[in-house]
């Protein structure tokens, strides 16, 4: 019944989740192929964050199955921790470790989780920080950086674990407008390099230029999936038309 193709990396099957009486995820079926970039879009409160968080089990689900690289999500403990190391997550509010320097933010996971030795971890961290354009900030503390710089460090921190897939939950929503592009550029480069990405964002430009597919969610359901061109120029569902007319108007 479930045919799993060798290229499928993240598979959600019949996933349901409630917050009390609220049915936040309703019969979600979603398959993400290796190297694919999927943008998740939809009105506030439609369950996009919950979907992201369910994929690395920051939220538990009530029913259904989630597999990553053909392995079902483990329940708790060491197994789950190991899986999470393979799934990078970038948050809207950055969540850099406030008591650690930028460099330490990027080495900590490598050293404590991957058991990389300190020197190799620092070397890799510096390469990654250079790649996201904040190499000269390595010894500062997160609070000394601008929002855009912090978010790029957060991306480097996630990349340092060599994740199989990266989740982005509105990575630019907390940023001042002039800083949005520096973060989107890093993400675009990542997409070009072949990273598998699930990105919750309302940035059309990014969706059009980097995404293979747009998933539109409303009220806990996936209402429509299409290529970015199809979705933005010719949405099929009324919910999507309504939503697009609202966000395209400003």
């Amino acid at each position: 019944m479930t045919e799993v193709s060798a290229t499928d990396l993240v598979v959600l099957k019949d996933v349901n989740k409630h917050f009390g009486a609220l049915h936040v995820l309703q019969d979600i079926d979603l398959t993400i192929a290796r190297g694919e970039v999927v943008v998740v879009i939809g009105p506030s409160g439609s369950g996009k964050s919950t979907l992201c968080r369910a994929i690395n089990r920051l939220e538990t689900i009530d029913s259904g199955h989630i597999t990553i690289d053909d392995k079902p999500l483990p329940a708790e403990g060491k197994e789950l921790a190991r899986l999470r190391a393979d799934v990078g997550m970038v948050f809207q509010s950055f969540n850099l470790f406030a008591h650690r320097t930028v460099l330490e933010n990027v080495t900590l996971g490598q050293i404590k989780v991957r058991k990389t030795d300190k020197k190799a971890a620092e070397e890799k961290a510096r390469t990654l920080l250079d790649r996201v354009g904040v190499g000269n900030q390595a010894d500062k503390y997160p609070a000394q950086l601008s929002g855009g710089q912090q978010q790029r460090v957060a991306i480097a921190r996630a990349l340092a674990m060599d994740p199989k897939v990266m989740l982005f939950d509105e990575p630019t929503s907390a940023l001042d407008p002039e800083m949005i592009n520096e973060v989107l550029e890093v993400m675009q480069q990542l997409a070009r390099d072949g990273m598998t990405m699930i990105v919750v964002t309302h940035e059309m430009g990014f969706a059009r230029s980097a995404a293979n597919r747009v998933v539109f969610m409303a009220d806990g359901r996936i209402v429509e999936q299409a290529t970015p061109d199809q979705f933005f120029s010719n949405p099929r569902s009324d919910r999507a038309k309504d939503f697009l007319s609202k966000i395209l108007h400003h």
Binding site: N56, L58, A81, M89, N95, L96, F97, A154, M161
Partner: peptide, 9 residues
Amino acid sequence: EAARSLGMT
């Protein structure tokens, strides 16, 4: 949450 997503126990 950030620590847990990195795979820390």
